[in-house]
Design a protein around this nucleic acid. Structure first.
Length: 941
DNA sequence: GCTCTCACG
DNA sequence: GACGTACGTGAGAGCA
């Protein structure tokens, strides 16, 4: 059938896929011979994703388009075109041929034409397809293709899974797609070496085209332009601009002997695609494709016809079985449970997962346990399922034929605590706590979430659904499908047991399969030590801290809430009085309209949603307008006060009261180990790492965090740990010496930079130096420092230049770190933790973010590693003391200790913290810890 | 569910 | 000279 109406053609920009794959992945090589295959692997994954992605408009036709070589007809027009492209990485070039082979192996047509760019082919095919009455989606984010959008053609950014239509093109270029070429011709392109008009950027080009309609008109009337610079740029470079147009205009009429109907979407031939994937030795993808095609994956050995070396290799390589929910067992009696326990003992490992009534482990009730020993064979033990249905009062009757909870736990306890049986979990801290509340302490264990985190921090999330989808190609049953959502949501104990079996057993099955996949990868990624010393041992430590919780005095919070409520009401009256109208003070949108539209404050800036920005810094600027805008200045000041109190009330004094556990009378946070990419912990439900401290009023909230009677709180915090680490990694002798001498580091920096002797230091100079010291840790920029210090940008840049002059090692460190990230796709802490930086080689503003993050990550991450090591050693260090560790706030540990024992605790904990880097890493600066004690957190800190 | 704002290190 | 800018988090409120 001929291509025509109703047909939808996907054109994949193959070259972009290759580069994206190359930069996003670590440099993988084929195991048998070391051939670099990282980009091929990534390419195959992306292509497979495109072929299987469940999108609304599935294509009927598809092709992957490549560049044939570097020379095209454009080089004859302009020899310098694309001449400043960096050399291809050595390990990428040999992979090109394989990406073509991969495309064909997936049974997708693969098109390239000598002398033309992939973009021209895409333009030509798009034109033919739309002329034939069909529609086209171009899978690419390349701005050079945006000129093709419209009239049945759109684009899809595969990275962000975002459609690029008329609106997005307009957003990018400021003109409609049919004028994009005009804008590009004027603005030029430094990446492709398109000259354009000197001094004209995208913004100006868009303005000019908007005003004159199109490029020819603009060039003809260039003499009328008012701004002399622009006028000259256009008049004097008219020819260069016309050449630029020929470079950026895609050739939609090139000779191309491809009939559209030959691009029809076809299933891959199983033998062909399996043969290719096996040859490449892509195990995971082989399994995923096999599962999808409903065939058995051949083993690596069979496919390669390799010599079988021994009995172990002769066994099939973990053939990915399809997920079969019907095959899961429901364990209803002790005899069945005993059979499972015997099997676990024999194998030596088991994946375990618990089902409960709540995500809050301290309130959750155990409903069931799932187990998996072999992939595909999993079981669920229902223990606490209750009768569902129409009982208005919530029936508490247990469903029949469930093993009694205590009996099941008693039977499982020996296995779960058996040192020779490895328990495998996904986010084991959760299950660990559930079991601990029933007197079972799981040990030893592995955690697939933490394995993923150790290997891939910065690349993807580490939740089970994401991991299963990504690595097993299998989306697990969504919990929502069992529990519903919103008001009608039920708890797991009301789920029908038949449904629960499928869901719960699948979780254990997925976890086991992930573990089988990750275990060997951990070693290859060289993060086994990180996983075994920084991630896994933290689980029981954090679990104990979370279960301990911290006592919070509800009465104190309640009193504060009431006082705040009164203040807020008063502020609201005053604010509306000044404004002369009633409005919602808590609505930034309404506030912006009041200030900038009705009161006429100049300089309001609207964000992308069209609302005025009204952040604290902007309101503070308005408060200084006492002369020109006295009313607005008063209003802004009041709103700032209102905001502060409102924040304290809603986020802290109100929410914390709710967070007090009625059974323990304490607040139990939850730490996510794999939340922050740098290795930091994150505290949630509630977040106890952002309790106010910077303002006097806020700090009083800490008075509600108290020690029980007869005990006191002790806070120990690392002094300037990130700056010390910077001094070490960037190797700055002057800073190292200052830390060894124990002098004020910010004052010392100021003295060096501004040539002021230490004894004549002013607080203002010191403040500036402090801002610069922190700025360096964050990947400083003149703009950022200027904004932070509220000084002119040139002055800020001057400070930075002087800083780099005095401490040249810092600049070198920053450059080297960025270079390392660009070459490797990740950066590392002193303890070997890897933080991936997939955006580091992107073009556009994303790269700027990625660079600063890359500079910061080793510093922040090393500090995080240090305190993790201290925490892991802490239970042993204070085992003999009547004390326990309660909270961690990045560089601070908070303890509860019996009154009188605080000197002993401080001595032990301080020594543990100050020596936490040893023996793994010897620092050229000392780590020092400061201690405080008190009845509440405000006093102790 | 997204955006804005703001609390912490 | 264009671009957009400090790093890392979590939570509550408004709004569509």
């Amino acid at each position: 059938m001929a291509f025509g109406k109703g047909n939808h053609l996907h054109l994949i920009d193959g070259s972009a896929f290759i580069f994206r794959a190359y930069h996003a992945l670590p440099p993988l090589t084929r195991k048998s011979d070391g051939l670099p295959v990282g980009a091929v692997a990534g390419f195959c994954n992306l292509l497979w994703g495109e072929l299987t992605h469940a999108r609304k408009e599935a294509p009927t036709h598809i092709a992957v388009i490549f560049d044939a070589g570097s020379k095209t007809f454009r080089n004859e027009i302009y020899p310098a075109y694309k001449a400043n492209r960096p050399e291809l990485p050595e390990d990428l070039r040999p992979q090109f041929a394989f990406t073509r082979a991969a495309t064909r192996a997936f049974n997708v047509p693969c098109i390239e034409v000598e002398g033309y760019e992939a973009d021209d082919i895409i333009a030509t095919l798009s034109r033919r397809a739309t002329e034939a009455g069909g529609t086209v989606t171009i899978i690419s984010s390349d701005k050079d293709l945006m000129q093709l959008v419209g009239d049945g053609v759109d684009m899809l950014d595969p990275m962000k899974n975002k459609r690029i239509g008329l609106d997005e093109v307009f957003e990018k270029f400021g003109v409609a797609p049919n004028r994009v070429v005009d804008v590009q011709s004027l603005a030029g392109d430094s990446v492709d070496n398109v000259p354009g008009a000197p001094g004209i950027g995208l913004k100006t080009a868009a303005l000019l085209i908007q005003e004159y309609g199109d490029l020819d008109t603009l060039l003809a009337r260039a003499g009328e332009i008012k701004q002399p610079k622009r006028r000259e740029a256009l008049v004097e470079n008219a020819e260069q601009i016309r050449i630029s147009r020929r470079l950026v205009q895609l050739e939609a009429n090139m000779p191309l002997e491809v009939a559209l109907d030959t691009l029809e979407l076809k299933d891959p031939e199983p033998e062909v695609v399996m043969g290719f994937l096996n040859e490449m030795e892509f195990r995971t993808l082989t399994k995923r494709v096999a599962e999808r095609l409903k065939i058995e994956a051949p083993t690596l050995e069979e496919a390669k016809g390799m010599h079988v070396q021994g009995a172990h290799e002769a066994a099939p390589v973990a053939v990915q079985l399809p997920f079969d929910h019907g095959a899961y067992e429901c364990i209803r009696d002790m005899a069945a449970l005993e059979r499972w326990i015997a099997r676990i003992d024999a194998v030596g490992h088991v994946a375990v997962d618990t089902e409960t009534t709540s995500l809050d482990e301290m309130r959750a009730e155990l409903v069931g346990i799932s187990l998996c020993v072999d992939a595909g064979k999993a079981a669920y033990i229902p223990l606490g399922h209750k009768q569902g249905g129409g009982d208005l009062f919530g029936s508490t009757a247990l469903v029949e034929s469930q093993i009694e909870l205590e009996a099941a736990l008693a039977a499982l306890k020996p296995v779960l605590e058996d040192p020779s049986v490895l328990k495998i979990g996904q986010n084991m801290k959760y299950d660990w706590k559930i079991f601990a509340r029933h007197g079972v302490r799981i040990s030893p264990f592995d955690d697939t979430m933490l394995m993923s985190y150790a290997m891939h921090a910065g690349l993807n999330g580490h939740g089970m659904d994401a991991l299963s989808e990504q690595y097993l190609g299998h989306p697990p049953i969504p919990i929502k499908s069992l529990l519903g959502s919103g008001k009608s949501q039920i708890t797991f104990d009301r789920v029908a047991i038949d449904d629960a079996v499928k869901y719960a057993a699948e979780d254990a099955d997925v976890t086991l399969r992930l573990w089988e996949l990750f275990k060997p990868q951990l070693h290859r990624a060289q993060v086994t030590t990180v996983y075994e010393t920084l991630e896994r041992p933290l689980v029981p430590v954090l679990a104990e801290m979370e279960m301990a919780g911290i006592e919070v005095d509800k009465a104190v919070l309640s009193r504060m809430s009431n006082a705040f409520a009164q203040k807020l009401a008063q502020y609201e009256d005053e604010i509306q009085e000044i404004a002369g109208e009633k409005f919602n003070v808590g609505s930034p949108k309404q506030l912006g309209e009041v200030l900038f539209d009705r009161m006429g404050v100049p300089g309001g800036e609207k964000g992308k949603t069209g609302a005025y920005a009204t952040g604290a810094d902007i309101l503070e600027d308005i408060t200084t307008l006492e002369d020109s805008q006295p009313k607005a200045a008063r209003l802004a000041a009041k709103v700032l006060d209102w905001r502060q109190i409102s924040k304290l009330k809603s986020t802290y004094t109100d929410a914390l009261q709710e967070a007090i556990n009625p059974e323990t009378g304490r607040v139990h946070t939850s730490y996510s180990i794999a939340g922050a990419n740098t290795g930091r912990l994150a505290s949630t439900d509630p977040n106890l790492q952002n309790i106010p401290v910077r303002t006097e009023e806020g700090r009083r909230i800490r008075e509600a965090f108290v020690a029980p009677k007869g005990k006191v709180l002790v806070s120990l915090d690392y002094s300037q740990i990130e700056l010390r680490i910077l001094a070490h990694v960037a190797d700055i002798p002057a800073l190292q010496q200052a830390f060894r001498d124990g002098i004020d580091i910010h004052a010392m920096t100021a003295s060096e930079m501004f040539n002021v002797p230490l004894d004549q230091m002013t607080s203002d100079i010191r403040r500036k130096a402090k801002a610069i010291n922190f700025g360096v840790i964050y990947g400083i920029s003149g703009f950022g420092l200027a904004r932070n210090l509220r000084i002119p940008r040139a002055e800020a840049q001057g400070f930075i230049d002087r800083y780099f002059e005095r401490f040249p090692g810092i600049k070198e460190y920053m450059a080297e770190t960025v270079k390392f990230a660009q070459a490797n796709g990740f950066v590392q802490t002193l303890f070997g933790r890897k933080i991936h930086t997939p955006e580091i080689n992107a073009k556009g503003p994303g790269a700027g973010f990625a660079k600063r993050a890359a500079i910061n990550a080793p510093i922040q991450g090393t500090a995080a590693d240090v305190i993790r090591r201290a925490m892991i050693r802490m239970p042993a260090a204070i085992a003999d003391l009547p004390a326990r560790m309660l909270l961690q706030v990045h560089d601070e540990l908070l303890f509860e200790v019996e009154a009188g024992a605080e000197p002993a605790l401080i001595a032990a904990a301080k020594a543990t913290m100050e020596g936490a880097n040893l023996p793994a890493v010897d620092l050229k600066v000392p780590l020092t810890v400061e201690a405080g004690t008190g009845r509440n957190w405000a006093e102790a800190h």
